[in-house]
Structures are given as structure tokens and as C-alpha cells.
Amino acid sequence: MNRSALTHFAGIVIVLVILAVLPHFLRYHHQDFLIFLVINILVVSSYRLVTLTGEWSLIHAVMMGVGAYGSAILSKQFNVSFWLSMPLAGVVAGSVAALLCYPLFRMTQFYFLIGSFAAGEAIRLSWIHFIKPFGGTSGVSGIPSPELGNIDFLEPIPYFYLVLIIVTLCLFLLYRVEKSRVGLTLHAVHWKAPLAESVGVNTWNYRSLAFITGSVFVGIAGALKVHYIGTVTPKQFDIGFMVFILIWVIVGGYRTFYGAIIGAIVLSILDEAFREFDELRPAIYGAILVFAILFLPAGLESLPQRLREKFGRSGAKEAG
């Protein structure tokens, strides 16, 4: 292991240790917040995989819902244990994504964006329309929490550890995919699709692959969320939530693996801080979004480098 990999590894261990002890210093309400934050980190990281090929889909929130509904219905109506229904949520979301690949990836860019939005809305409206088994507007409630020995997963702290372990594992897998040659090819498809095709890359396959894999992971995130809340509704996965995902990724930055995660953390904490403004919160988010894209187009991840450049440049000016 070389030195940079070692510092990398050490950094991750430190973050994990901090996260592991953190909930014991928080009040109940903030423990909840922390659970959702960790789940949202998985949401943005899986979304990042989808966007690696350069296609910004608007269906990711709905795919999370597909996993959530899948796991909820499996565990509640078919008595499938959480430990099975949670990974199956990923399979369900991945399968729905696979079915959508054919229509969706006939389109690119604008058409893909609108097409994915339309497909997502159609799925979401189906949850509202088909009361059986989706429960209409009020959704499915009474989703059982996980069972393991005599651990009480209704309590936030045990559930937090469960989420932390699963999300860390998923992030590790996502990171491996991105750093592998498959990930490199996804990048290549994004930046110069014709060039990638000319060396034999079937761009359709790779777009689909990224979309399906991202959906599998976000499906798992969906299951994690609703088994904690106990209820799943169509409202949880509407375009509003999709926009939050977009904002986290854009504000954080989409050039590195960490950018989206930083975005999710910083903005979620900000959001928590603005809780008392309540109805003004979306506007604050909107303003942050606009300012971020205008003044920090490469995201928060670029901040250290930009500061360095700024000081470097002013230094050069003085010298000149």
C-alpha cells in the first residue's frame, strides 16, 4: 500500500469512528436526522454512478421508491424477513430499471431527461391509483422493522449502526465500480461517446449498466428508509425529492466520488439549521442552488483548489 492510499484509508477509518460514536452525543431528533443523512449519502452516490455516463435522469427518486415499496410489500404482505426483502428491494428496483432501459436509452440529453421524468411520474401516479397493493395516497404503513436477536431496531441508535454498515458496504462497492475499468469506460462514454464507440464500446450497454446498477443501490436505500419510518407514501419520492438529489450533487460537485457526498452532508446540515424558517426553506434551497451554479459551477469539492488558486494568483500579481 503506498502512502496516499494509506492516508486515504486512515481518513475513512477516522470518519467511520466519528460516525460510530456520534449518535451517543445527540438528542433523539438529531439521531433521526443522522440516519436519514447516511441513507441520503447512498442515494447521491448511487445517483452519481448513473450520471457518470453524462445522462441526468429525473427518475432516481422514483427508483428509490420502487425499492421501498418492493421491500414494504414483501415484508408486510408476504412476511419476508427484512434481511431478505432489503436486498430484494435492490433487485426489484434494478429489474424495473432494466425494463425501462429500452425506451429510455433510445433518447439522450433533453429527451432522456423528460422521458425519465415522465416514466417516473407514471410509476408514481400508479402507486396513487392502484390502491391494492400500493395503498393510494396514504401508502403502505405498519412496515415491520428488522429483527435480529433481541436488538430493538425501533430505537434510532441500533438502526443507525445497521444503516451505517450497509451504506458503508454499498459505498465501497460503488467506489470499486467507479475506479475499475468499467468506471473508466463510463467516463469515456460521457466525455466522447463517438470516440468510445469507435474503440468498441457499446454506449447503449454502458448507459443501461450504470442506470441499472445505480437503481439497485438506491432501491436498497429506499428499503432502509421505509423500514425505519414504518410508512411508505408516493409523496416521499416525488419530483421535490428528486430535485434535492440533484441539488446535493450539483452543489457538492460531480467530478469526484466525494463531491456528491459533501453536498448531501453540507446541505442537509444547512437544511436542519433552517428548520425554524419552515415554509421559507425551499426558497433558501432554491437560492443556494442558483448561487452555486452561477458562482461555484464545479461544486464545493472545487473550493480548496479555488482558494489555493486565488491566493496563488494574487501572490503572482504582487510578484509581477
Binding site: V177, S180, R181, V182, L184, T185, H187, A188, W191, K192, P194, L195, A196, V199, G200, V201, L209, T213, R255
Partner: peptide
Amino acid sequence: TLFQELSVFDNVLVGTHNRSRTDI
């Protein structure tokens, strides 16, 4: 027409796609 944001090495590595396939 190159993968402008990738290193020279990664650019060439993309080109090996046909000869040594890998899967996810």
C-alpha cells in the same frame, strides 16, 4: 477528439476495451 478530462494513460486504457472485456 480525446477524453480531455482523463490522463493519457486512462485514455489509452479505454482503447483496450475490445481486447480485454471486463464486467461489473
